[in-house]
């Protein structure tokens, strides 16, 4: 079963004659353990795709299904619970709460979901440890470097039992080595079974994906083959090696 299934999604902002069709009949899905990158120019609809996938915004028409549950048939409270338990978000500007330490930021979604403080903090600590941030747990965001802040944001996105990770330009203004580190973390989360969607205009970040989807004017116009298809086509041969 796909973790995320978007069927015939259309999103229209405004009303005629000034309406803007941000998405126009988009079909999009992600399997467990897969990393899919969405590329497109500014205004192509890629960020709208992500916010609708994450239930932060509702489509004008079409259906979004997360882990087999159609969002359209859920109450507002049920959708909020789904967002807390199942979906992790990573934004370009990290969106960490400045008054909370790293561990508090990471464990907050669990605490909001009613998980006991001790259990939530233990899960938060485990997530920070897995990203090499154990010694930064008690630091506040302004005491962390840009790369560390983004790792905390990723820890927050994967803490607990999240199965869907949604990232919008996750390397932000980081340098290319730190950007690669961010993509390695997202890639590692996928190795553990998380499904991830990364929206980016950066081809280097997108190249970490199993599949790259291209969006233009609110429509998916093209995509690369999946990694399995490419491996099969190349007979597991790597580029540059003589045939």
């Amino acid at each position: 079963m796909n973790v995320l299934e978007m069927r015939q999604i259309t999103k229209v902002y405004g009303t005629a004659p000034n309406e803007v069709r941000a998405l126009d009949g988009v079909d999009f899905s992600v399997e467990p353990g897969h990393l899919v990158a969405v590329m497109g120019p500014s205004g192509s609809g890629k960020s709208t795709l992500l916010t609708i996938a994450g239930s932060l915004e509702e489509p004008t028409s079409g259906e979004v299904v997360v882990n087999g549950q159609p969002l359209g048939s859920m109450s507002r409270n049920e959708r909020a619970a789904l967002r807390r338990r199942t979906i992790g978000y990573v934004f370009q500007d990290f969106n960490l709460l400045p008054g909370l330490s790293a561990i508090e930021n990471v464990s907050l979604p669990l605490e909001l979901d009613g998980v006991g403080l001790r259990r939530a903090r233990a899960a938060g600590r485990a997530a920070l440890e897995s990203l090499g941030l154990a010694d930064r747990a008690d630091h506040f965001p302004d005491q962390l470097s840009g790369g560390e802040r983004q790792r905390v944001a990723i820890a927050r996105a994967v803490v607990g039992e999240r199965t869907l990770l949604l990232a919008d330009e996750p390397s932000g203004a980081l340098d290319s080595v730190s950007g690669e580190a961010v993509m390695r973390l997202i890639h590692d989360a996928c190795q553990r079974g998380v499904a991830a969607v990364v929206v980016t205009h950066d081809a280097q970040l997108a190249s970490w994906a199993d599949r790259v989807v291209f969006i233009r004017d609110g429509r998916i116009v093209d995509q690369t083959s999946t990694s399995a298809d490419v491996e099969a086509m190349l007979g597991r041969q790597r580029p540059g090696t003589p045939s």
Binding site: Q204, A206, D222, T224, S227
Partner: peptide
């Protein structure tokens, strides 16, 4: 699409 496919392989 082709260039990004090649980049995926190098990655």
């Amino acid at each position: 699409r082709y260039l990004i496919s090649v980049m995926q392989q190098w990655t």
